[in-house]
């Protein structure tokens, strides 16, 4: 009984520690970003990895989600004789919610996990130590480009996702169910306001920062984790952890942002 209370306490303390470390890392990295020299190429490289390489996945999943939404909304709206609202329904749910969330989850799975694994392996093979010994800050050299790239890539990917998802919905509505083209497009343009696009944009920027931050921190600080989980096994467990944590962070902050804005 007492043991289990102790365990709960230990879990709470360690997760608080982890959160603290994560945000501390954010502060350190942003401070270091302000110090010269400024380098663009590492950021481009990370944007290629996080952003450009995710494009195919984002486009395929975006079209699919758009088509699924088109199908489901059509079935529901048909019962109320309101199929004119198909464009509005698809556009609102994609731009406000599904676009940012789905894109972030895709990026977590594709790029986030490998960021954690990469940093974790660099840690256990003393590459991080080697950087420090060369008087190069690992925060600036390794983490800052990833954070900036995540911050920029996720919104850009979200926009691509939104666009192709709207196209997917259009395809289902107009070509499968023979809705008049204008009805879908007008429903969309009338329902979506700039505030909706802005909300999606704000969400995707925050998600982009959150997921890269969590994934970086987990990999970078893997040596501070449980004593039993070092080495290759440690890397695999922090990677799983990072994916789970950043997915939860995305979903939870989605709710928070939705409630606040």
């Amino acid at each position: 009984m007492l043991k289990s209370i102790e365990n709960i306490g230990a879990i709470v303390i360690s997760s608080l520690e982890q959160t603290g470390r994560t945000f501390n890392l954010l502060l350190i990295v942003f401070w270091e970003l302000l110090q010269p020299p400024y380098r663009l190429y590492p950021i481009v490289r990370q944007m290629y990895f996080i952003g450009a390489r995710s494009l195919t996945l984002i486009i395929v999943s975006g079209v699919t989600i758009g088509m699924v939404l088109g199908l489901q909304f059509y079935n529901i709206l048909e019962r109320f004789g309101a199929v004119d609202l198909l464009g509005a329904g698809v556009a609102l749910s994609v731009i406000r919610e599904l676009g940012p969330v789905m894109t972030s989850l895709m990026v977590v799975g594709r790029a986030g996990s490998s960021i954690t694994a990469e940093l974790g392996i660099m840690r256990i093979t003393e590459q991080v130590d080697a950087l420090e010994c060369m008087a190069i800050s690992p925060g600036k050299f390794l983490i800052a480009p990833k954070l900036v790239a995540g911050l920029l890539s996720v919104p850009l990917l979200t926009m691509v996702f939104d666009f192709v998802a709207l196209f997917g919905g259009y395809f289902v509505g107009v070509y499968m169910f023979g809705l008049p083209e204008g009805s879908y497009m007008n429903g969309m343009t009338d329902a979506i306001e700039w505030v909706d696009v802005r909300l999606g944009l704000v969400k995707s920027v925050i998600f982009g920062l959150l997921i890269t931050l969590i994934c970086c921190a987990r990999g970078f600080y893997m040596h501070l984790g449980k004593a039993g989980s070092q080495g290759a096994e440690g890397v695999s467990s922090v990677t799983t952890d990072a994916v789970v944590m950043s997915s939860i962070a995305v979903l939870f902050s989605d709710f928070l942002i939705g409630a606040l804005i």
Binding site: M122, T125, Q127, A130, C133, I136, F141
Partner: peptide, 30 residues
Amino acid sequence: RIQMGVAFQGGALFSSMSVAENIQLALREH
């Protein structure tokens, strides 16, 4: 640290860079 060099047990070469890029890194940074 700029006046010291370290060769780690496992080499600790940066796996994303070629041998030459590894060696040049400190020069480029400092």
